[in-house]
Nucleic acid binder design. Structure first.
Lengths: 188, 188
DNA sequence: CTCCATTAGAGACGCACCGTCTCTTAAAAT
DNA sequence: ATTTTAAGAGACGGTGCGTCTCTAATGGAG
């Protein structure tokens, strides 16, 4: 809460705006989120938003990061490859569940250049997971084709964004047990 | 071409509008395609468009279908599973190349309910392909988990829509040789 | 402690396009 | 020949964009 007559600045203002953006996102979804709506909720002017972010997509991406932090900062380490991959997929699915499908879909359209960021981040995470598995001797080598490294994340992302099916724990297990593990264990 | 003072109707008018939509799509892309622009190019009024299609997405989907026909109507039959799957993926990739990435991305956002149509269509196509392969004895059974049936199409769709990488023939071969074939031949 | 450069807050502005509506008149139906 | 349908054209109110302008609060420099 902010006093009458005070004026926020810099990082404090930025945090308030990102909180307001998140609240607006939860309230009206991405399609009907407007810069004017965010500005009103944050009790500031549109100019203040445009001074920091070029457009809706950038603002919303920043708000999501602000709210839930980066996936890359918490790479799971459960002790088994299967557990690690499932945990990674659960993180992705949880985030999507919180956002809701229309936010995810809407963002994809306007994301433009930033679309491939997610792919690259997950490649890094999966590389770490696979290297640990190789050290434990669970897989012959961590030096797998890129396509296979990112396979679980790619499939889940496809499921979330491009199919309208609900993502359940069973979905994650299918991806890991029917597709990923058979490929990496029989690869030498 | 249309004479001065004549007035098109019914199917002929509809075909002209869909041609105009396609031309507009190629000229300005999806993001900047407007109902007003299409109406102007087709030399008709907006009302005529709204009488037939509820929104941009529906109109553009109809125009794409009108221009290139349905993939489901030409299921490849090359004599081998590998050849068939590659041919299916080539059809998908060709269509995407013609449309360009921004059209594909833009459509996804507004497609809403019609998004899963593509997934279902490709499931049907792949089922046919796999049944033929089972008859030839190339695979033990065509009765595979749904996730594996649609795997190649899903991966390619992910590549097209969610990564910004260029899709080449090598990409298609990776999907088929590194991922799909190892899974289906070693299954049963 | 005072002055100054910065920028927050507020809203007006022109613009583009949406989707609806009206009106006239050509083309088909009977 | 008359009636019904719907094409062609554009006006309309509405919404939100992104820009611009103005003022006054704020934090830093001296």
């Amino acid at each position: 809460m902010v006093e009458e007559g005070t004026r926020r600045r810099g990082a404090a203002l930025e945090a308030d705006i990102l909180d307001a953006t998140w609240a607006e996102l939860m309230a009206v979804g991405y399609a009907r989120l407007t810069m004017e709506g965010v500005a009103a909720r944050a009790r500031t002017g549109k100019q203040v938003l445009y001074r920091r972010w070029r457009n809706r997509a950038d603002l919303v991406i920043a708000a999501i990061r602000h709210h839930s932090g980066a996936i890359a900062d918490r790479v799971p380490d459960t002790g088994s490859l299967r557990g690690d991959v499932l945990a990674v997929l659960r993180l992705m699915a949880e985030r999507q569940r919180e956002l809701g499908p229309d936010v995810v879909h809407g963002l994809m359209a306007e994301a433009g250049d930033r679309k491939s960021e997610a792919v690259e981040i997950m490649h890094g995470v999966m590389t770490t997971v696979l290297e640990r598995a190789a050290e434990r001797g669970e897989v012959p080598t961590a030096d797998l084709p890129e396509r296979i490294v990112t396979l679980p994340a790619d499939l889940l992302r496809h499921e979330i964004v491009l199919s309208d099916r609900l993502v359940t724990e069973a979905t994650l297990e299918e991806i890991v047990d029917d597709v990923f593990l058979p490929l990496v264990t029989g690869h030498g």
